[in-house]
Design a protein around this nucleic acid. Structure first.
Lengths: 247, 247
DNA sequence: CAGTGGTCTAGACCACTTC
DNA sequence: AAGTGGTCTAGACCACTGG
């Protein structure tokens, strides 16, 4: 049983969370098994019950544990653990998880005024411009999606300068390192036919149909930090999203 | 300033949450405005700081507030509040929000063995059957989606008996009242062409394309409680989902 | 009944922001 | 320096579950 380090700058509840996470991943705490009760954890790790409860409450929110009043605290199924943990993963990570090799081409990275729809979504003032990234995504070197990202300019200046890094990588990850951390996204999906440019880049026949998605990303304060439009031709990629119910 | 009732069976932190929610909705606490500090709330409502923090922490999780260390606690934008609150809404509610009149026809409600895909998703044993509901959804009396729901039978027996109620209503709501509360859903979307039955019911031309979705619903323990397949023809409905980033 | 998680208190010290 | 939220303690009583 590991001991929590009081000299460690990381909070005790956070250290306890990490210990429990590792025990779950290592299989010492199996799905649907009760973990030690709160008083037991208090005794084992020499912390107060409030600290134990803070650790457990956060693990419940992260989908690793569930509680039952009067019975105990239990380990969630791996299926739930993974899905809740992956509520927002990058496209490339998702491809790797499905055993595909992610790749991509960055066609354009430019500063433009943007269409009215884009300006509305990003709530720009009259003077502001947008960073526009145009990407062709590939899986095992086959084109599977055409994607255009828009970011509000003065705020995303540093992302613009590092735009070349996102050709086959994660825009969300780059944004997070530059002070534009996604907090919430709204996705919209609909069946649609491709534009001529999409048909060309994705090697589609005239009437081949697919799916179009729009996605607006917000930071913690509710400010829009990205707007993305993408086209997925039929049969090459399935978009998967995990939601939890807020009661 | 309302006073919390100690004789009320509802917990103090819960009463405080409700008071703050009402003040936000009534506009007494405007977006991006700081709410009273934690010590101020302690004094105003005569509760301990731990109680105040429990109320605030839950409101942060629900997307109504955000905290900034050293600065204060602030009200989220209505846009964020609404979207986070609607992480899983019923189809009919969603239509009403968009100003459309929801409706529907229940074609079939039956007990069947189910395809292998369905049986795998619901993790059925060899003896178990599934409840199958087949629905045509309408908005303003126009068909907009064809949907088939599967529920694991012995568990969903009471839902099966009340199946007629869900023709134009919410299956999730009915399930919740019958001990099958959704905790997590996994949605998958892809562009696709309609089957002949879908084309007929939705009045589609041969090559008209649309979107197909599959959705598996789980309860708190990770047990699958529903599996849904749906087809949305192009141009009639846009599927919107809100996600929050778990860090 | 004993054991579990749910609620609550009255303190304390710290890290961060602002002035 | 003053005020904010972040962490932590050592208790207490309650509601729910199980044998």
């Amino acid at each position: 049983m590991p001991i929590l380090e009081r000299s460690n700058p990381l909070p005790l509840y956070y250290q306890l969370k990490e210990v429990l996470k590792q025990q779950i991943q290592a299989g010492h705490l199996a799905p649907h098994m009760a973990i030690p009760s709160e008083p037991e954890l208090v005794a084992q790790y020499h912390v107060s019950r409030a600290t134990v409860r803070q650790a457990l409450t956060e693990l419940v929110h992260e989908g690793l544990l569930y509680r039952q009043h009067g019975r105990g605290t239990f380990v969630c199924e791996p299926r739930v653990q993974q899905r809740v943990a992956s509520e927002l993963t990058s496209f490339s990570e998702e491809l790797r998880r499905r055993g595909l090799k992610p790749g991509g081409l960055l066609f354009v990275s430019e500063l433009v005024r943007g269409s009215q729809a884009v300006r509305e979504q990003l709530r720009l003032t009259d003077e502001e411009q947008v960073v526009r990234l145009e990407r062709l995504r590939t899986a095992n070197d086959e084109p599977i999606a055409y994607e255009v990202n828009y970011l509000p300019y003065p705020r995303a200046a540093s992302v613009y300068q590092r735009a070349k890094e996102v050709a086959d990588g994660s825009l969300y990850h780059l944004m997070s390192t530059e002070g534009l951390a996604p907090y919430m996204v709204e996705h919209a999906f609909r069946g649609d036919s491709p534009t001529s440019r999409e048909a060309e880049l994705l090697h589609l026949k005239e009437n081949e149909c697919g799916m179009r998605s729009s996605c607006t990303t917000f930071d913690e304060t509710g400010a829009p930090i990205a707007y993305t439009e993408a086209y997925y031709p039929s049969g090459r990629f399935e978009h998967r999203l995990t939601l939890r119910v807020t009661k």
